[in-house]
């Protein structure tokens, strides 16, 4: 079956104001709204559009994380994914562990395409897609803003610092999404009801043969230094004067 695998991560919602715990051991997540990582939503939307155009037969979403993560998988199923895989794991999952786990799922599901978000908006690591592509020994196309598929290739327009770069990769491949790839659909209530009946399989990390290795220690979390609040100027003349005085104009 022509299948696309999409990675989903549960993250603190985009609109939540992040606060560091007073003991500097993390950020406050108690009672905080959690959501699907926005870039992963874009990844899922793209997979669904490819399927709706007849370019794929099945869209499978997968996540590595604690039991709570199933809520985000249900959201993904409500958006239109056909089934979900939940690899249960507690504690910190480093990108290398996430990629090794996804590789196991890739071997099991044999997708022709894996689409992931370019980064998660919590740890901002931006590594998992590239690490997966390396471990899988397959092409990567990161920061995609346009994807054109043939039976054997993907032509991907990438948002790079210089502008838009186009590369062509052989399938199967890993693609990571940038913001302008698409605008994800809203989930409708009947779809949420339907999603409850869609298959969600729970797997154990150990059963996949993955030992979660933590190679980095998250030693201390701190709030960022605050900028000093500046002064108000009344008009353009006063502004130009002030900037000239500082040697900036």
């Amino acid at each position: 079956m022509k299948r696309i695998l999409v990675g989903i991560k549960r993250v603190v919602d985009y609109n939540v104001r992040i606060r560091v715990k007073p003991d500097n051991t993390g950020v406050i997540t108690d009672g905080v709204k959690m959501s699907v990582n926005p870039f992963d939503e874009i990844a899922l939307e793209e997979a669904l559009r490819i399927k709706e155009r007849g370019g794929a037969e099945e869209v499978v979403v997968a996540t590595v994380g604690p039991a709570d993560t199933q809520a985000q998988l249900r959201t993904a199923l409500a958006m239109g994914a056909d089934r979900a895989l939940h690899v249960q794991a507690d504690g910190i999952i480093e990108p290398l562990t996430a990629a090794r786990t996804l590789l196991k799922l890739v071997e099991k599901e044999q997708p022709f395409l894996v689409i992931l978000g370019k980064q998660a908006i919590d740890d901002d690591n931006g590594q998992t897609g590239q690490v997966l592509a390396a471990l899988w020994n397959r092409p990567q196309a990161t920061y995609a803003s346009k994807i054109e598929l043939t039976d054997t290739t993907a032509r991907v327009t990438r948002e790079v610092d210089a502008g838009l770069e186009t590369i062509e990769v052989d399938l199967p491949a890993v693609i990571t999404t940038d913001l302008r790839l698409n605008e994800p659909r809203y989930v409708k209530l009947p779809d949420i009801m339907k999603a409850k009946k869609k298959p969600l399989e729970t797997l154990q990390l150990a059963a996949l043969g993955i030992e979660p290795r933590q190679q980095l220690k998250l030693a201390r979390f701190e709030p960022p230094p605050q900028r000093q609040k500046g002064i108000r100027v009344k008009d353009a003349a006063e502004l130009v004067e002030a900037l000239k005085k500082k040697g900036l104009l």
Partner: peptide, 29 residues
């Protein structure tokens, strides 16, 4: 392992980086 977006190198094994869009600074070892 990779440490992304290193903003300070305190020692060969201790680094600072922004997370949560810069709303927190993480020291990684």
């Amino acid at each position: 392992p990779q440490i992304s977006d290193i903003m300070a190198l305190e020692s060969p094994t201790r680094f600072k980086r922004p997370i949560f869009a810069g709303n927190a600074i993480l020291t990684v070892e």
